[in-house]
Design a protein around this nucleic acid. Structure first.
Lengths: 124, 124
DNA sequence: CACTTAAGGTTACATTTGTAATCTATAATA
DNA sequence: TATTATAGATTACAAATGTAACCTTAAGTG
C-alpha cells in the first residue's frame, strides 16, 4: 500500500538521477555528479548498495562486470509520501495551513494561483 | 540572518509544545506528551538540553529547583526555513512545482484556491 | 536532623547517515 | 600467461539521533 521508503538526503540525490535517466550505470552517475560535485566513487557505491537493501533500487548485471541501476520506487508515489510527511510534521497534515503560509510570505503569485485555478477548471 | 536551526523530529515535538504554551516546565510537557505518548522523562530532558545547546530554547530557573523552558526561535521563521529546505530537497526550490503536484493530486480544492486568491487581492 | 523523593545534570549506547578505505574478482595488456 | 587496472563488495568510522540509565543536590517528612 504505502510504499514508504526511508530515503536519506544523500541517497535522494542518486534517486533523482535514476529517475531522470530511467537507468544508469555507476560511471554515468559519476559523470552527472561530477559537474560540480567531487563525491567519491566509493561513497556512491555505498549509497547505491543501501538503496538496493531498502528496495528502492534494482541492479541488473550486464555480463560479468557491468551493472545497471534502475529505480524501483515510483517518483510520484515517493513525492506524495514526502509531501504527506512534511505536512504532518509541520502543518498537522493540513495542506491549507501550508498554502496559507506560502501566500502570507508571498511565495505564490496571483498568476500562479490563476494558472492552477484554470487547470482545475479544465479538468472536471 | 537566516536563523537556521537544525531541529530533529524528536526535538520538534518539544518545540511545538513550547510554541503553543509560550513557556512550560518539564512536568507540563510530560503531561501534554503523555496523552498518547509514554516517552521517558529522561528522554525529554535530553531533548531540552540539546535544544538549549542549539540555542533554540532558553531555560529560566525559578528558585533553586524549578526550571521553565521558553522557545528562543520564532516559529514563523523556523517554518519558513523548513519550507525552503523542503522545496529545495524535492522540488528544486520551486513553489510552483509543489503546488502543481498538489493540484494534480487533488490535494487542493477550487474553494481553497479561491480563498487564497481573495487573500492576495485584499492585501495589496 | 536523618532519610527518602523528586528535579535537573551527566554519561551512555545502539542505530542511522555520510563518507571513504580496503578487499576481491574480472578484464585488459605486456 | 603474469601483471595491472577496474568494477563491485565488504568493512570502517565519526557524527548525529533517539532513547534512557545514572548521578547530584535540593526538598519534604518522620
Amino acid at each position: 500500500m504505502s510504499d514508504k521508503y526511508d530515503i536519506t538526503d544523500a541517497e535522494l540525490e542518486i534517486m533523482q538521477i535514476l529517475w531522470k535517466e530511467k537507468k544508469c550505470d555507476l560511471n554515468t552517475i559519476m559523470e552527472i555528479l561530477n559537474t560540480d560535485n567531487e563525491k567519491n566513487k566509493n561513497t556512491i557505491k555505498t549509497l547505491l548498495r543501501r538503496l538496493i537493501l531498502k528496495g528502492a533500487v534494482k541492479s541488473k548485471k550486464i555480463g560479468l562486470k557491468e551493472t545497471v541501476y534502475v529505480p524501483a520506487v515510483n517518483e510520484e508515489k515517493f513525492l506524495n509520501n514526502e509531501n504527506e510527511s512534511f505536512l504532518n510534521r509541520l502543518y498537522n497534515g493540513s495542506t491549507d495551513k501550508l498554502l496559507l503560509n506560502f501566500v502570507e510570505n508571498k511565495k505564490i503569485s496571483k498568476e500562479e494561483l490563476q494558472k492552477l485555478m484554470d487547470m482545475l477548471e479544465s479538468e472536471d
